[in-house]
């Protein structure tokens, strides 16, 4: 468009109207382009998910190999099978692919369970013997499963040890000290409060769908919070999960007014047998 331009030749009102119209149109075009481009599945197109999964699996396998070398894994079917059945029940009820989760039971007195990258779920024998009933263990497993499903594990690692260290670990250039430090971060320190709450509430949803009463899980948090006063160093799971009473209250609030089959919680015989077998093994 070519013409002769003169300053102050505009009527203020019509100029304002023109600016506003053009501004609204521009923002609308930007939003429309963004919306249009959002319709494309870029994650699939650039194979981002696959690349992320491969990296995560590499890191997870490396972490687990290192743990395997320093800890004793429980392989007895009579112990692994009941815990496996708990995990399978939660997965089936919540359409989570059970095959992708690698369950590992370790012979260690510490009360701890944690998720490693690449869907490795590690549970210490000390946690199983501390649970008073099966539903409590369901809650802890559900909580760790939620961390995996919500991608908290990798996010925490990126945040705590940095993306560059993780990339060097995944490409085989990370030294053993860096790997040990990363394992320590993931096994004995907390996720932030928001992520812990999200994992708790997701676990409650998982338990609900699996037909398990989440109340014992909340009770477990209460009990461990009290025990922490006496045995702070051993109770990793709770010391790495702060504000446990507050979290327990949130769980109770979430399930208020809902009814769950109590039979599952009362099924103590099977769980007691499991605990006995674990205790015998640890002796």
């Amino acid at each position: 468009m070519v013409g002769n331009w003169r300053p102050n030749q505009f009527n203020l009102q019509s100029l304002m109207k023109k600016i506003l119209t053009e501004l609204v149109l521009t923002v609308a075009i930007i939003v429309a382009v963004w919306f249009g481009l959002s319709q494309v599945d870029w994650m699939k197109l650039f194979k981002i998910k696959q690349a992320t999964q491969n990296t995560e699996e590499k890191i997870g396998d490396l972490f687990w190999k290192m743990m395997q070398n320093s800890e004793t894994e429980i392989t007895s079917d009579s112990i692994v099978a009941p815990v496996d059945s708990i995990l399978t029940r939660i997965c089936t009820a919540n359409s989570i692919d059970r095959k992708k989760i690698k369950l590992h039971l370790l012979r260690k007195d510490d009360i701890n369970a944690f998720a490693l990258p690449g869907n490795h779920l590690v549970i210490y024998s000390g946690l199983i013997t501390t649970c008073e009933n099966e539903a409590e263990l369901y809650g802890v497993i559900g909580h760790e499963l939620a961390h995996m499903e919500k991608n908290h594990v990798m996010n925490k690692l990126v945040k705590e040890i940095g993306l560059s260290v993780l990339i060097s670990i995944s490409t085989g250039n990370g030294n053993s000290e860096a790997i040990k430090s990363a394992i320590k971060q993931i096994s004995s320190s907390a996720y932030d409060r928001k992520l812990e709450t999200e994992a708790d509430l997701t676990a409650v949803d998982y338990l609900e769908k699996a037909g398990i009463d989440p109340e014992p899980f909340a009770n477990f948090l209460y009990q461990l919070a009290d025990q922490t006063k006496n045995l702070p160093s051993q109770i990793y799971w709770i010391s790495s999960h702060p504000e446990s009473k507050e979290r327990a209250e949130k769980i109770i609030e979430r399930i208020k007014g809902k009814s769950f089959p109590k039979a599952e919680v009362m099924d103590s015989l099977r769980f007691e047998r499991l605990k006995e077998r674990v205790q015998e093994l640890v002796k």
């Binding site: 963004w34 481009l37 959002s38 494309v40 870029w42 994650m43 650039f46 981002i48 991608n151 996010n155």
Partner: peptide
């Protein structure tokens, strides 16, 4: 996390 919306933006 990275998403299609983010890449589109």
């Amino acid at each position: 996390t990275i998403s299609s919306q983010y890449i589109a933006y």
